[in-house]
Design a protein around this nucleic acid. Sequence first.
DNA 1: GCGGTTAATTGAACGTGTTCAAATTCAGCT
DNA 2: AGCTGAATTTGAACACGTTCAATTAACCGC
Lengths: 240, 240
Amino acid sequence: MTAMRKKKAAKTLKGDQTKALILETALDIFRERGYEETTMRAIAEKAGVSLGNAYYYFRSKEYLIQAFYQRLHDEHLAASLPALENKDTLKARLLTVMRLRIDISRPYHHFAGVLFKTAAHPESPLNPFSDESDPVREQSIALFAKVLDGTKARIPKDLKAELPYLLWVYQMGIVLFWIHDPSRGHRRTYRLIDHTVDLLDKLIHLASNPFMRPLRKQALRLVQEIREALPDDDNDDKKE
Amino acid sequence: MTAMRKKKAAKTLKGDQTKALILETALDIFRERGYEETTMRAIAEKAGVSLGNAYYYFRSKEYLIQAFYQRLHDEHLAASLPALENKDTLKARLLTVMRLRIDISRPYHHFAGVLFKTAAHPESPLNPFSDESDPVREQSIALFAKVLDGTKARIPKDLKAELPYLLWVYQMGIVLFWIHDPSRGHRRTYRLIDHTVDLLDKLIHLASNPFMRPLRKQALRLVQEIREALPDDDNDDKKE
DNA sequence: GCGGTTAATTGAACGTGTTCAAATTCAGCT
DNA sequence: AGCTGAATTTGAACACGTTCAATTAACCGC
């Protein structure tokens, strides 16, 4: 009976609860004080666990950010799917998704800098190309595939295959800009999105022109080459 | 007389010597052991100064990297100028400069990751757009202006004005790739340079076509918009 | 219930980047 | 030579991220 209760309480294996508690607490303090200013000791204390315990669940402070990364994507996806339903042009769909990305990220603006701080570091788990961020990257790219699939735009197969990845890279660029954007309400970022989406839309249609085929092929070969060199990619056959 | 000697010895004001000594020592150990693994205490000890003294000359460990940055550019420039003398096409000149960049950087490959680690962090002195890296950025862009000036290529004024900056950004992209490139002799990076330079050459000529004028104008307006949002830029009039 | 095995938790200790008040050296002036 | 203020140098102290051996709690087959 008491045994039953205990089991029920531990249905998420107890550890998962602690892990979630630590993460929530960490994100709370991050949002309030920023990343650098938040100490692991403060997180542990507010969460009511010991310092060592926090490290039992998160191998380092950086791993807390990776969890944040995933959460951000989840919210972005949840907001994007319904918003896409009544849009059918490529331009409108891309615009929607990009704007939502910023909408979702806004509460974390002043500490989002660290996201990119380590992002380019080869050995960091935060590196968006690293194995460890594989799941969220795949999901992010998949969202852009969905953006494309909903349109009637006539895009050549070769380009269409690479576009989700390219748009994901584009999104990283926009977020990078947003991190540096101090303008009120981040309106500069929104304006940049408007203009780049407009331009991208034109470029995609230009690249889809038969006349552009050779140049397009060459550019796509290049993208392929770059992707292959990256540590891990869904292009690899993971057979063995 | 002894006073004379003293004055001569101190013509670099003594402090500069110490600063240089610390920097040399630091770069030595960085090259051997990498950045993270090198402690400020080790640098101070090997340089024969106290720990606090190292901090008197370099506000933080990161500032040592900024000095490294500058040195890298100096070497790059020194190697590029003579190499450019007998090349007159845009393609050949760009290829030369890009390849030299990697040649110069090679000895530091395994610790160059930190360069970009903090590079994207808005508040870091390493951020290539920050005020603090202003001089080396200007010089870097100026090198690409020189690459352009030596060619007979007919490039529209508007594009030609922005190209040095754009090529500098392109170079950052290549370096980013190189940091992640584990291939023997970094041949993947060299291959990427070959292919991208080829493509860039074509794109620049395509964009120079009168037919492309509207799209080019739009793209350039975009570049302008992005540059204006950045903290500090040579577009500001620094009249005095 | 009861060992034994695994999971979870603790807190002390370590190494490192950074700070700072105090001590020392230096440069110019009389 | 002696004084004065600035530049340089020192080393102890601090805060923080991280590690780890030891302790406690939870689970499971008997």
